[in-house]
Design a protein around this nucleic acid. Structure first.
Lengths: 228, 228
DNA sequence: ATTGTTAGCGAACACAAGTTCTATGTCAAA
DNA sequence: TTTGACATAGAACTTGTGTTCGCTAACAAT
């Protein structure tokens, strides 16, 4: 294991930047990009430090090839940074897109979610959107029509749900209203025997229903409006 | 699953070459190298076929960046075992969250995006949301206030933008209106000398401004409403 | 004081490499 | 036959990008 303390701050910065840049872009940065990112004003100084890092065994370079830099070892010391298949898989979860949600009918959730291997019916979801929720409990529905407009959700939007039949105050849920025969997305507030369903749109009035007359279909985790 | 049979022999060859090249060198090949390797005599033809592959979803490119090509999926389709770095990077891109968007002021876009390696100011975006757009051109802003409510966008929503100063009809853009002194999100339609800006909300009326009096700040790619 | 080493800056340079334009050929549809 | 979409070639153009060079500054060793 090499002694990282021998590297200067700048060299460590270059290593860090290299790692994130390659991870994000799939190709290495230019000398000038490195300079910009690490506060080095001269390309020659970047070049100088890159050669230092090569000499120290942290990277290797291809002469005269643009972006011809590759990491040999990561600055964190453990393993090559550019072989990370396991991490890669964890970078995003696949969530089944199991159908549509329309106002006129309850949400259909198949019991056997989880065997939706069809690529077309899956969407990528970054883990930050799940907030630690088990992806197996999460599904997505595409909104059909503008009936959810009072929830500020449009035709074509994709809604991420967590399957659950109860809700706590303030959560946005999909509810099936027996009496009206429709599915709606509202903020949920338990008020004694009845339930207040508050639209997301600030100027719209809430509706009140008896708890017995509404079925919670799932909690809304997130809304994605793809390619507006 | 994509229909690989629609690719020409040349395009399949380019894909194969890309994979092996990146694996061996740690950075992508140049257009001319691809041409050499696949028997294409003209850089423009390589360019042409690369764009085809981008359109087909196999790779994405960064405009004007040398070697700015990355694979999105492998041509073999099966090999998860030997995940190469570019693929890993493509599974989820990090996009800088560079600030807020409020109605009362123009969007501030730093010229030197791309060096935002602060973890807090980045968000994960699945590649499906970028649709092949270079992640380096994409940034995110958090919406402050409900002034965008006519675009069906709420306080707290995160809007993904692609930086661009022009727009085509039907694209949703962020525009700065000189005369009103405000930023707004509207669908863009060029109508002769003037521009029609159409709110997303179906019941709201469009506004018309002279093309000279509105500055396009970026195109809206997607809207994310985190944890409703 | 002198010297050598390490770091740094900025500019100039040369070639690498992406982009654009025009022209050509093929082939199926009208 | 004509048209239009597609694929290709070649060359010109413009920008990107690695390299080199001269010049300082700090600092320790001589």
């Amino acid at each position: 294991m090499r002694d990282r303390t021998k590297l200067s701050d700048r060299q460590r910065g270059i290593l860090r930047y290299m790692e994130t840049y390659v991870e994000q872009n799939g190709y290495p940065p230019t000398i000038r990009e490195i300079g910009m990112a690490t506060g080095i004003n001269s390309t020659s100084v970047v070049n100088y430090n890159l050669n230092k890092l090569v000499a120290a065994g942290y990277m290797s370079r291809s002469a005269r090839a643009s972006r011809g830099i590759r990491l040999v070892k990561s600055s964190s010391g453990k393993g090559k940074s550019n072989v990370i298949p396991v991490q890669a898989a964890a970078l995003s979860s696949k969530v089944p897109l199991i159908g549509q949600i329309v106002a006129s009918q309850p949400v259909q959730i198949p019991e056997d979610m989880g065997h939706y291997y069809d690529a077309d019916s899956q969407i990528d979801v970054p883990p930050s959107m799940l907030r630690g929720i088990d992806p197996a409990e999460v599904y997505a529905l595409r909104v059909k029509g503008d009936s959810m407009i009072d929830a500020m959700i449009r035709n074509g939007d994709i809604v991420l749900f967590r399957r659950q039949n109860t809700a706590r105050d303030g959560e946005m849920v999909a509810v099936w209203l027996n009496e009206r025969g429709e599915t709606t997305l509202k903020y949920f507030y338990q008020e004694g025997e009845r339930v207040r369903l508050q639209p997301a749109h600030p100027t719209m009035d809430p509706i009140f229903v008896e708890a017995k007359h509404c079925q919670i279909q799932g909690r809304v985790l997130s809304v994605i409006r793809p390619t507006v």
